[in-house]
């Protein structure tokens, strides 16, 4: 079994896990971080997106062993204590979720989008969220939320 050491939400994690352990299984099963959702398990829906060294990754399509030595951020690691991350606030303020299943992946993808593009426009958001499916909202409010969240991140110097 491969030995794996990584950082998850700033905390070191290490151990030996079966080679076939997916990153989403390590997070949800072994670390009990169930905020990472598995919608399809076939790389289609984006619910399982987490950040690996800051980049959005479908955690159902990455082995835990491939995350060795990397820094993983899940939805649980975004807020600072009781204070929500500005992108989380924006999703709440703009009613960008209904059932909430897609939301962790949407928010993490959006945080990476905002950090990767200081001049993020609505079209960039729509394109950037092509890999994240939502069965509830119809996307309009999500786009509004990401625009607002990105603006708040810029104001806080997080972009």
């Amino acid at each position: 079994m491969p030995a794996i050491s990584l950082s998850v939400n700033g905390k070191p994690v290490s151990g030996e896990y079966e080679a076939r352990t997916l990153l989403c299984e390590l997070l949800r099963g072994h670390l009990a971080l169930t905020g990472t959702h598995v919608g399809c398990d076939t790389s289609q829906c984006g619910a399982c997106v987490v950040l690996v060294d800051g980049d959005p990754v479908k955690s159902c399509a990455m082995l835990a062993a491939q995350a060795d030595g990397r820094e993983v951020t899940t939805i649980e690691g975004l807020a600072g204590g009781e204070k929500l991350h500005p992108m989380q606030e924006a999703f709440r303020d703009h009613h960008a979720l209904q059932c909430g299943f897609c939301t962790p992946g949407m928010i993490l993808t959006s945080v990476a989008l905002a950090r990767g593009n200081p001049a993020l426009g609505e079209e960039d958001v729509a394109k950037g969220l092509e890999g994240n499916l939502c069965r509830c909202t119809g996307y309009r409010n999500i786009i509004r939320a990401v625009m607002a969240g990105a603006k708040a991140m810029r104001e806080q110097g997080d972009v």
Binding site: G46, P56, V57, G128, G131
Partner: peptide
């Protein structure tokens, strides 16, 4: 290609 998560991997 694909979407941002596919492009990071």
């Amino acid at each position: 290609i694909g979407d941002p998560a596919v492009r990071s991997r």
